[in-house]
Design a protein around this nucleic acid. Structure first.
Length: 566
RNA sequence: GCAGCAGUAGCUUAGCUGGAUAGAGCACUCGGCUACGAACCGAGAGGUCGGGGAUUCGAAUUCCUCCUGCUGCACCA
C-alpha cells in the first residue's frame, strides 16, 4: 500500500535541506482530525534553521509541491503544517488491498527469522489456575502475530516438572498415598497432598530435609521416585491438554525442566572454565556484584541443581536446537531479577553474541484476589476451568435472553464466554496487575471481547444478505467522515501488528480492534448499508466486508474465535 | 536496607521515540429500536495526569527528589 507519510516526508525534504528519513519520524498523526491526517510540527526545525516555526511553516508551504492525487490540502496552523490526504485515494488503496490479498495485513517482514517463545509453563501436580492464563494467552497471541508477519516461531511449554516441589509430592505420597485415589480426580487430589505436605514442612524441618533428599534421589534416577514422578506428570498433562483445547496454546515442544536437567553438567563445566564459578557457604555461585545484582546460584549445598542453572542449560539447548534470533520468556514480573541474573550469567557460556542479545524477558502483572496473592500452597486459587465454565454459562444466559432462536447455542456460548476471558486478559497493558473480580471479568458490554464479536456478527449478517462484489467499488461513496474513520483504521492494521511485535504487547492489537468496532458501530448507527442506489450499496457493503475481515483476522490472532451469529 | 515496576475521572484504563482542547469503557442522569441485530449509538456530568523541583518554544510522557502501593533480593520455581 502507498505510504502517505513517506510521500509527505519526501515533499517536505524537497523544500528544506534535510533528510527525508529524519522528517519521516517527525511527522505525526493529529489527535483531532480537524487538524488533518498527518501533521508536521515545524518547531523541530526552528533551532537548526534559526527561524521561527511560523516562518518555516510558511516557507515550506510556499515551496512544497504535492501530488493532488495523494494529498489534497495543506494548511498552516500555529507552527504546524497540516496535511489532508486524498480521501478517494485512501479508499482506493484499501479496495485494492482487499481485492488482491485474502490474508489481510500478512507479510514476510519477519524474513524467516527464528523466534522461540517460552510461555504458559504450568507446574505439574498443581492446578492450572487463573494465574497461568496470562502467560498462556499473551504467549499465544505473540506466537500467532509473529508467525503472521513471516517469522519462524516455536512455542515452548517449559513445564515445571522438576525441583524440590516434587520431593515434597513424593514425600506426601509416601506418607498418605493410600488415603487418596489419584487417578480419579488427579489435580484436586494432588493439590490436597501438596497443601498438606507443605504444612508439615513448615512445622517440621526434618520433613523438609526429607523432601529435598527425595528431589536429589529423583535427579539421581532412583526408580521409586522416578516412577512416581512420571505418574504425576502424565496425569497433570492430561488435565492441561483439556485446558489448552479450550483456550488455545500452540506448542512445538513440551520439554520441561526435567528434560533440561541432564544438560546441567555441561553448563557447570563451561562456567568452571570461565573461572567465575565460586564456592560460597557450600553452594556454587556466580558473583554479579559488578552488575549491581545478588549472585546467581548455580548449585545447592547438597549438589542438586537450581532453577537458574536449568534456565542456563535451556539457553544452551535452545541456541543449538532452534538457532534462535529472539528468545522470549513470558512470565510474571516476579521473575525480572531472576532473568536479569540468568541472562548476565549466560554471557559466560561462550555462546555467539546473537544468542545473548536475543534473550528477552517479557514480564506481566499478576492476577490478585481482593484478599491478596493467590497461593497453591494455601489453597486459595481460582481454577481456570471454573472461571471458563462460569463465563460460558453467563454467555448462555444472555443468549437465552437476547436470541433464543439461535442455532448452535452451546458452541456460540463457548466462543463468547471464552472470548470474553481471553480479551479481558489482553486488553490492558500487560505489566499492570489485575484484581480478580467476577463481575468485571464477565461483563459483556463496552470494551470487551463480546463487543468485538457482536460487531463482527453484524457485518456478517449484512454480507449474508448482500454478498460482496470487490470489482465494482466506487470510492466516491466512501468520502464521508464515518467511512473515512474506518478506512484510516484499516489502513493502520499492518502497522499495528508491527507495533505489537516491537513491544511484545498484544494489548495494542486489542485496543485497535475496539477502535475498529467502535468506528463501524458509529457508521452503522447513522448510515444504511443496504440502500437503493446500487453503487452506494456496493461501496458500503465493501466497507462492511473489510471491517469484518479486520475484526476476525485480528481477533483470531489474539486467539479469540468468532461466531457467525450470536 | 538495596533494586525494579506502578500511581491519569467514583472504578477499570488509553495516550507512539516530548507536540495542538488528556481519549475510552463501567457505574450515574437523559435521549434513540414500524432502518441491515439496542451485547449498539448519541448527549450530560465527572481530571491540581501522586506531590515538588529541573530541562524547553512545549512535559501525563525526559531528568532529579519525596510520598504511596506492589514485586524481588541464597539453597521455592
Amino acid at each position: 500500500m502507498l505510504d502517505f507519510k513517506k510521500e509527505i516526508a519526501k515533499s517536505i525534504a524537497n523544500t528544506v535541506e534535510l533528510d527525508s528519513c529524519d522528517l519521516y519520524s517527525f511527522i505525526e498523526v493529529p489527535k483531532d482530525s480537524e487538524n488533518g491526517d498527518y501533521a508536521f510540527p515545524c518547531f523541530k526545525l526552528a533551532k537548526e534553521l534559526k527561524k521561527s516555526p511560523m516562518i518555516i511553516a510558511n516557507e515550506i508551504m510556499e515551496k512544497i509541491e504535492l501530488d493532488n492525487e495523494i494529498v489534497e490540502k495543506v494548511e498552516v496552523v500555529s507552527g504546524y503544517l497540516n496535511f489532508f490526504i486524498n480521501k478517494a485515494r485512501l479508499a482506493q488503496e484499501i479496495v485494492n488491498e482487499f481485492s488482491e490479498n485474502d490474508e489481510i495485513g500478512k507479510s514476510d517482514i519477519g524474513n524467516g527469522k527464528n523466534i522461540v517463545i517460552d510461555y504458559s509453563h504450568p507446574n505439574i501436580a498443581k492446578p492450572f489456575h487463573i494465574g497461568h492464563l496470562r502467560s498462556t494467552v499473551i504467549g499465544q497471541a505473540l506466537y500467532n502475530i509473529y508467525e503472521y508477519l513471516g517469522y519462524n516461531v516455536k512455542g515452548l511449554n517449559y513445564l515445571g516438572d522438576y525441583g524440590t516441589q516434587f520431593g515434597k509430592m513424593i514425600e506426601g505420597y509416601k506418607l498418605w498415598g493410600s488415603e487418596y485415589d489419584i487417578e480419579k480426580d488427579p489435580i484436586n487430589q494432588m493439590m490436597d497432598i501438596y497443601v498438606r505436605i507443605n504444612n508439615l514442612c513448615k512445622e517440621d524441618e526434618n520433613v523438609l530435609e526429607a523432601c529435598r533428599d527425595n528431589f536429589k534421589k529423583l535427579e539421581d534416577g532412583d526408580s521409586y521416585c522416578v516412577e512416581l514422578w512420571k505418574k504425576f506428570r502424565e496425569l497433570s498433562l492430561n488435565e492441561f491438554h483439556k485446558i489448552y483445547n479450550i483456550i488455545g496454546g500452540r506448542f512445538d515442544s513440551w520439554d520441561g525442566e526435567a528434560y533440561i536437567a541432564p544438560k546441567v553438567p555441561e553448563v557447570i563445566e563451561l562456567l568452571n572454565k570461565s573461572g567465575k564459578l565460586k564456592e560460597s557457604e557450600g553452594a556454587k555461585i556466580i558473583e554479579l556484584e559488578d552488575k549491581n545484582m545478588p549472585p546467581c546460584m548455580i548449585e545447592k549445598t547438597n549438589g542438586s541443581s537450581t532453577y537458574a542453572v536449568r534456565d542456563l542449560a535451556a539457553i544452551l539447548y535452545r541456541a543449538k536446537t532452534y538457532d534462535y534470533d529472539k528468545s522470549l520468556y513470558i512470565t510474571s514480573y516476579e521473575q525480572v531479577l531472576h532473568f536479569k541474573q540468568v541472562f548476565e550469567t549466560a554471557k559466560l557460556l561462550g555462546l555467539d553474541e546473537k544468542y545473548i542479545n536475543g534473550l528477552e524477558h517479557v514480564p506481566f502483572g499478576m492476577i490478585l484476589l481482593p484478599t491478596g496473592k493467590m497461593s497453591t500452597r494455601e489453597g486459595t486459587v481460582v481454577k481456570l476451568e471454573d472461571l471458563l465454565n462460569e463465563s460460558i454459562q453467563r454467555a448462555q444466559k444472555i443468549i437465552e435472553e437476547k436470541n433464543p432462536e439461535l442455532e448452535n447455542k452451546e458452541e456460540v456460548a463457548r466462543k463468547v464466554g471464552i472470548g470474553a476471558v481471553i480479551f479481558n486478559d489482553l486488553s490492558n497493558n500487560r505489566i499492570k496487575d489485575e484484581i480478580f473480580d467476577w463481575n468485571a471479568l464477565l461483563n459483556f458490554q463496552g470494551e470487551t471481547g463480546p463487543y468485538i464479536q457482536y460487531t463482527y456478527v453484524r457485518t456478517k449478517s449484512i454480507i449474508e444478505k448482500t454478498g460482496v462484489n470487490l470489482k465494482n467499488v466506487f470510492v466516491e461513496f466512501l468520502l464521508d467522515n464515518d467511512s473515512q474513520n474506518i478506512l484510516k483504521l484499516i489502513y493502520n492494521f499492518r502497522n499495528i501488528l508491527i507495533q505489537v511485535t516491537d513491544k511484545n504487547e498484544p494489548s495494542i492489537l486489542s485496543r485497535y480492534l475496539l477502535d475498529v468496532a467502535k468506528a463501524y458501530s458509529v457508521f452503522y448507527n447513522s448510515n444504511k448499508v443496504i440502500v437503493d442506489d446500487e453503487n452506494m450499496k456496493n461501496a458500503r457493503v465493501f466497507l462492511t466486508y473489510a471491517t469484518g475481515k479486520i475484526l476476525k483476522t485480528g481477533a483470531n490472532l489474539l486467539g479469540i474465535q468468532m461466531p457467525d451469529k450470536m
